[in-house]
């Protein structure tokens, strides 16, 4: 599917730089792992291998394989191969950004109102549905979730000031 965008009539980030970025991120992860392992000891103690023994070698493996990946990423990818077109990435971001806001809203206003907003936003903005339909689904879903989770299965979910106010 990435092949489709070859030809680069429309712009987008190069596949090569994204892949290199992922590999570098893995290298960072490897270094964190190795650091954490060294902190708890990587040799053999009285209780057999210490807590850091395995993570240390795992970290080394990540480091090694990621360096290979980095090299491959820079060598094998033609520079004109796109990761995705900007317009596609915009689509992706149109999920990532609202979801990020949603995730942080959960701690502030509870999961119910946050979910209502998220669903309404998607339906209205991306789906272009009429308001009546939007409201019905956006409000109905948290309601069903409330009944199923809190009332029926007794799972407490995060709540905000509104629920507090209603004494739920």
């Amino acid at each position: 599917m990435a092949k489709k965008s070859k030809g680069a009539a429309v712009g987008g980030p190069a596949h090569r730089s994204v892949e290199a970025g992922v590999a570098i991120f893995a290298v960072v992860l490897a270094l964190i792992t190795i650091g954490g392992a060294l902190a708890v000891g990587i040799d053999w103690g009285a209780e057999g291998p210490k807590a850091g023994f395995f993570p240390f070698y795992v970290g080394l493996f990540i480091l090694g394989s990621s360096l290979i990946n980095l090299w491959h990423a820079l060598r094998d990818n033609p520079s004109d191969k796109l990761f995705a077109e900007w317009i596609q990435l915009r689509q992706v971001m149109s999920v990532v950004i609202p979801t990020t806001i949603y995730v942080f809203l959960i701690s502030w206003i509870g999961i119910y109102i946050a979910s209502l907003l998220l669903i309404a936003l998607f339906m209205r903005w991306l789906g272009k549905y009429g308001w009546g339909y939007v409201v019905a689904v956006a409000a109905g879903t948290p309601l069903v979730i409330f009944i199923v989770f809190e009332k029926w299965f007794l799972v407490p979910l995060p709540k905000g000031p509104l629920e507090e106010f209603l004494g739920l």
Binding site: Y112, I113, L116, V134, V135, A138, A139, L143, E163, L168
Partner: peptide, 11 residues
Amino acid sequence: SSKHFLLGAVA
């Protein structure tokens, strides 16, 4: 209005 809807229903 959607909030109100929920409010009423939740209540």
